[in-house]
Computed example of a mutant assay.
Amino acid sequence: DINGNSLTGLVSPTVTVGSSAGPALINAYLFNQAGGPAGSSPRALQLVWNGGVTGPRGGDLGKAALNAIRLIDCDGDRHTPLGFDDLGDGDNYVELYIPEGIVVSRVEVDANFFYDPANFPNQFTSVEVTSLLPSAQAVELQYDLSSVGFNTVHFLGTPALPYRIFFSADLKNWNCIGSATADPDTGAFFFEHMRELEQIGFYRATP
Rank of each mutant, 00 (worst) to 15 (best):
L71K: 03
G101K: 15
G90D: 04
D86Y: 13
G52I: 09
Y29W: 15
L25V: 07
A118E: 10
N50D: 05
P117E: 07
D116F: 06
L82T: 07
A34I: 11
N67M: 12
Q123A: 15
L71I: 01
D77M: 15
A38Y: 08
D85P: 01
D77E: 11
A68W: 00
S19H: 11
A44D: 06
R43Q: 11
Y115Q: 09
L30Y: 13
P42S: 15
D116R: 11
D73G: 04
G39E: 05
D60W: 07
H79F: 05
G36M: 09
G101M: 08
R78F: 11
I72R: 00
C74K: 04
A111H: 12
T80E: 08
P37L: 07
D116Y: 02
Y115M: 06
N67T: 15
G88M: 06
F84D: 01
R78S: 15
A24Y: 13
G58V: 01
A34D: 15
V127C: 01
E100F: 02
F120D: 07
G88E: 08
L96W: 02
V103L: 12
G101W: 03
I26L: 09
V103D: 03
L47Q: 09
V103N: 00
D116H: 02
G83K: 06
N32S: 15
F114H: 11
V127F: 13
Y93S: 12
D91L: 08
D85Q: 14
D85G: 13
N27I: 05
D77C: 08
R78Y: 10
R106Q: 03
G101T: 08
A64W: 09
G88L: 03
F114D: 03
I102T: 08
F31D: 09
R78E: 15
V48D: 12
Y93V: 06
D116E: 06
D60P: 09
D110L: 08
A111K: 03
R106P: 01
S105R: 10
G59D: 14
A28K: 04
G76H: 10
F31V: 11
G51T: 15
Y115D: 00
F113C: 03
V103Q: 03
D116L: 09
N112L: 14
I72A: 03
L25R: 06
G83Y: 00
P23S: 02
L66F: 01
G83H: 07
I98S: 00
K63A: 14
G90W: 05
D77I: 05
A64Y: 13
E95H: 12
A68L: 04
I26M: 05
F124C: 04
S19V: 06
R57P: 10
N50E: 11
L25P: 03
D110V: 13
G55A: 00
D60R: 03
A118V: 02
E100R: 13
A38E: 13
S126P: 01
N67S: 13
A28D: 04
A64P: 13
A34C: 01
L87Q: 14
